[in-house]
């Protein structure tokens, strides 16, 4: 077996562009999905009954459908229904946000529900309103408690951006495929890409874990 890593050296700029897209798509998805997910989660836990039913249905549906299917549908089928064609990056951002936000809302819901009732009782005894209790007492503790699961979700999100290569988003995955095919060096290129993903993901998950260990006591009532 002879390995030839020269295609990677020769095309490092092309691959680095892909890496940049991967990072951009990851960050944009995380920000958007977190905001949407918080709204979904709060709506599910504290919203009126007529809102909870469709939100629960939406969240459970997203838990049931593969992200690949959401991506492909958003990119190929959505324009046929609406006449609006999204460029690959924006279609990927929309699809990933639709999908990941459902999981953010689940994590937030679990975090909120895990806080023991005595905390609400204490806040009520002080005379706080429902909105004040959520904002000042429950939400901050839930955020701390959801960190481990949120860290896993960050990792899942970054990995899921690689699936956007299927709709031709020029991310690290897609650029690697191109270089691998052009130079017929799939093993070298894909191995390098795997290492690159690992080097992004491993520190991210470790950093979240370390941060959680430092702040865990703030969520322990």
């Amino acid at each position: 077996m002879d390995f030839d890593f020269s295609p990677i050296v020769d095309n490092w700029g092309f691959l680095a562009q892909g890496l940049l897209i991967t990072i951009e798509l990851s960050v944009a998805t995380i920000v958007a999905a977190t905001l949407v997910g918080i709204a979904l989660g709060l709506g599910r836990v504290y919203g009126p009954g007529w809102l909870r039913v469709p939100l629960t249905f939406y969240v459970d549906s997203m838990r049931a459908i593969p992200v690949l299917v959401v991506l492909v549908w958003t990119f190929f089928a959505f324009p046929l229904v609406t006449g609006i064609t999204l460029p690959p990056f924006w279609a990927a951002l929309a699809a990933l946000t639709l999908h990941i936000s459902a999981f953010v809302s689940e994590i937030l819901r679990a975090g909120l529900n895990s806080i023991r009732p005595g905390q609400v009782r204490a806040a009520r005894a002080l005379g706080m309103s429902g909105a004040q209790i959520v904002r000042k007492i429950l939400f901050p503790q839930a955020v701390v408690r959801m960190l481990p699961a949120y860290g896993s979700l960050l990792s899942v999100t970054i990995k899921d951006t690689a699936i956007a290569s299927v709709i031709a988003v020029p991310d690290l995955m897609r650029q690697s495929e191109t270089i691998a095919a052009q130079n017929y060096a799939p093993i070298e290129v894909f191995t390098t890409a795997m290492l690159a993903y690992f080097l992004i993901l491993f520190p991210v998950t470790r950093a979240v874990e370390a941060f959680y260990r430092r702040v865990a006591h703030l969520g322990r009532s």
Binding site: G118, Q119, R121, A122, A123, R124, A125, L126, G127, M128, S129, K136, I137, P140, Q141, V144, H217, L218, G219, R220, S221
Partner: peptide, 19 residues
Amino acid sequence: RHVRQRMGMVFQNFELFPH
């Protein structure tokens, strides 16, 4: 709520806000 604001309460498990 206004009535509760004039009554202080102390709980068995303290229920301090951990954050």
